[in-house]
Amino acid sequence: MNRKHYGVITFPTSQAAAAAEAQVKAAGYECRLIPMPEQISAGCGLVLQVSVEQTLDIQKQLRDRQISLEGSYEVWFENRKKFVQKMEG
């Protein structure tokens, strides 16, 4: 996983994120649970970290499987500063 540029998918609850992690892993994608970036929400849930190139594909597959998710974001760093932007899909 690129540590300086990756995608995150957010879910209604941390439990839903954990359930999605198992499915996404089973589908052969690299992913892991990480804390919610504070730029997305002040809440302290978990989100799914995925490759930025695969984010929208994974989001679509999860939606096709009726897994409720909130959205996808692109995360990148410049001079150790973190930037987050919503991805449309």
């Binding site: 540590r3 649970l33 990480i34 804390p35 978990l46 760093f77 973190k82």
Partner: peptide, 9 residues
């Protein structure tokens, strides 16, 4: 795990 990941950032 969350703590260590946050530390890396």
């Amino acid at each position: 795990k969350s703590f260590i990941f946050s530390l890396t950032e």
